[in-house]
Design a protein around this nucleic acid. Structure first.
Lengths: 149, 149
DNA sequence: TTATATATTTGCATTATACAACTATTAAAT
DNA sequence: ATTTAATAGTTGTATAATGCAAATATATAA
């Protein structure tokens, strides 16, 4: 009775709920979207606006405003690229880095709790599977290459 | 370098993108949220408004309006519960059922494509892992029990 | 039979989102 | 070199999504 889509539907919904809860840290109220921005800016090395917007599949105009509010919150810095004056590169401020780390920590804590209901063997298998899944989705032409409306 | 959170972050983002693309079927333009509503109404047996709203972690007032628009699109039916006149039970119309089935089919197609990049063994392992993950998240006190703001 | 709790809806305000049009800058074409 | 085309980003405007507060209707408890 449980088809493949059902399995993944439930999983993504649960992660959605998890994420919803996990982003308010240290008095700073971060939305789910914002936490994804912080995460991605942290991971990539001085990315441009376009880069992050594309990674996240967000319209650049929406993204521009999202960044504006993160700058206002003093979590993100926007620097003009010296080699191309059209481009701005993004980075986290000290405070932004701190918040990103806290969210990361909190998510890992949550995941640890989830893993506590598994055997060590199951945990390894799940981690490995997520990795495999990510790679496969990376190869797919349909995932991760957001087709604009 | 790839910590646990990172793995899951990437996975959920990719699924988010996948979902974004997969919900416009048969000329009918369904949003991601709406597809989740259709799915859940389909799965549960004549659920009440509250039931679905709670499952999805959506505020009941938002949900009320979401249902209103699905009714206007003739995808969902709302019937007064004979045993408790405060309650309305939800069900899919024939058309709603059709759309839900088409989305389900499309998602399964996408997933099949993703699986095509794996060995049969890996696929089995991934499916099993998602199942384990869902069960574990179900047991967690933090997932799936959306704590309101 | 009054008080309290539950299910749902509407008023209102806020936020998120995206398309179109704009500016500024760079790269390509001739 | 100079016009043309492409790229990066911002702002105007409109629309949709969301949620809190308050209201209505019904059910349950005191």
């Amino acid at each position: 009775m449980e088809n493949t889509r059902e399995l993944f539907q439930i999983m993504t919904r649960r992660f959605g709920l998890l994420n919803k809860n996990c982003c308010s840290v240290g008095g700073c109220d971060i939305s789910l979207t914002q936490s994804h921005l912080l995460y991605e800016i942290d991971v990539q090395h001085n990315p441009s606006m376009q880069q992050i917007a594309e990674t996240l599949g967000t319209d650049i105009t929406t993204f521009s405003r999202q960044i504006q509010s993160l700058i206002k919150m003093n979590l993100v810095r926007k620097m003009p690229d010296p080699t191309d004056r059209r481009v701005f590169t993004l980075s986290l401020t000290t405070e932004g880095k701190m918040i990103a780390t806290m969210i990361d920590q909190q998510m890992n804590d949550y995941l640890e709790e989830v893993f506590s209901f598994m055997t060590e063997f199951e945990k390894e298998s799940v981690l490995r599977s997520v990795q495999i899944l990510n790679e496969a989705m990376g190869k797919s032409s349909r995932c991760c290459a957001p087709v604009k409306g």
